[in-house]
Each structure stands twice: as structure tokens, then as C-alpha cells.
């Protein structure tokens, strides 16, 4: 027997979408996901909420960490299509710190259609300003420091490489423990020499 997902799919996915929209519109501000679904173990309910909101048969998902049970659950609730490789994926669910494909392999769109690119949903434990890089760009009233626990300089370097040919690039959400942070490709790392907030 598969467990339930959103208790009120229409309104819960609407609320989740609004949280995602805010997260992407004002990157690197931790937001709360107001409606968490029941979800199989290993899939954090915050990530589950996002996947339930984004996925359907039109979307190809790459999620190497999904257990068989979680796969069945997600398939039943969204009818998503499995991507055959990370290069094909529209959406990826990855656990930060686990083995994963390099970001450079993901779809970054085409110059005429930069929207034909991948979105990564990272499962994380939480967020910290400690040691975090400083970001700026659209959606930042002032530059901000933040990073998910487990992200290091190498991660940010890889992210930066991947978005250097803007508007090509990938968009990301970090989620876990009921919280959500967005990072669109339009965000930039601020030079260390410049002041942050």
C-alpha cells in the first residue's frame, strides 16, 4: 500500500509553488514550506512537496538516490517520466554530499531557448551563513550570505562554471526540514574583496 502525499493536492501544491516562486524571486532567503506531504523515508518531505508540485508525465526526472519504494510512490502520485541519463533530465533530485553527476553534464538550455534547461532540487539538512559566499543579482535588495550545510568552495566553483554562459545555466532549490532556498542562474557570486551585508 502506497502512502498518501499532499492531503489537499490542489491547494497544497499551490502553496508550495508560491513558496518556490518567492524562493527563486528572492534567492538565498530561507523560506518555509507551508504544506508538507507524507513521504517515504529517505525523501525529505520538503523535497517531496517540491517534486509533487513540479512533476508530471511531461517532466523527465533523474533521481539516483530514490529508493524503489520512493520511486513507486512518486510515480503513483505524479506519473513522471524517468530520464535515461542526467543529460536528459528536466528535473533532478540529488542529496547534497552524495555521489552525483557533475553539474556540467546537465542541460543548460540553448541560446535561443535557455529555458530548456535542468532544475536541481537538492536535499539538504539546513542552512548557515557561516563561511558562506556572498551572492548578488536580480532579487537581491542587498548582497546576502548563505549556504546549505555541506556546500563547500568546490561546490560553488562548479556552480559558477556551470552558469558562466548566462543565460544558459541551471536553476536550483535547496530544501530540507520544512525549509526552502532558491538559487536561479541569474545570481552571481560577489567578489570577496567587496563588502557583503
Amino acid at each position: 500500500m502506497l502512502s498518501a502525499a499532499f492531503s489537499d493536492p490542489v491547494h497544497d501544491s499551490q502553496q508550495t509553488f508560491r513558496a518556490m516562486l518567492s524562493a527563486l524571486a528572492e534567492p538565498m532567503i530561507p523560506g518555509t514550506l507551508p504544506r508538507l506531504p507524507e513521504a517515504p523515508a529517505t525523501l525529505d518531505p520538503a523535497c517531496a512537496a517540491i517534486l509533487l508540485t513540479l512533476l508530471d508525465q511531461q517532466v523527465r526526472l533523474w533521481a539516483p538516490d530514490l529508493t524503489e519504494e520512493a520511486q513507486r510512490w512518486l510515480q503513483f502520485h505524479t506519473a513522471y517520466t524517468s530520464a535515461e541519463s542526467p543529460e536528459q533530465a528536466d528535473i533532478l533530485w540529488l542529496v547534497l554530499g552524495h555521489e552525483r553527476p557533475p553539474l556540467a553534464r546537465l542541460k543548460q538550455g540553448e541560446l535561443r531557448f535557455p529555458d530548456r534547461s535542468a532544475t536541481v532540487v537538492w536535499q539538504v539538512e539546513g542552512f548557515t551563513e557561516l563561511g558562506a559566499p556572498c551572492f548578488e543579482g536580480p532579487g537581491f535588495q542587498t548582497p546576502r550570505r548563505l549556504q546549505p550545510l555541506g556546500a563547500d568552495a568546490a561546490f560553488w566553483h562548479e556552480w559558477q562554471q556551470c552558469n558562466q554562459h548566462y543565460p544558459l545555466g541551471i536553476d536550483m532549490f535547496f530544501a530540507g526540514n520544512g525549509q526552502l532556498v532558491g538559487l536561479p542562474r541569474s545570481s552571481r557570486l560577489r567578489e570577496e574583496s567587496q563588502a557583503c551585508m
Partner: peptide, 20 residues
Amino acid sequence: ENTKRMIRRGLLKAVAIPGY
């Protein structure tokens, strides 16, 4: 809900690539 989901995915791309 499928139509909303399609539009929502489009809006997220639109926000990520301002003006596109």
C-alpha cells in the same frame, strides 16, 4: 492541475531568466 503545473514551471524559468 496539469495546465497550472505547466504554467508554474514556465513562471519559474521566467523568474530565473529575467526578461526572457
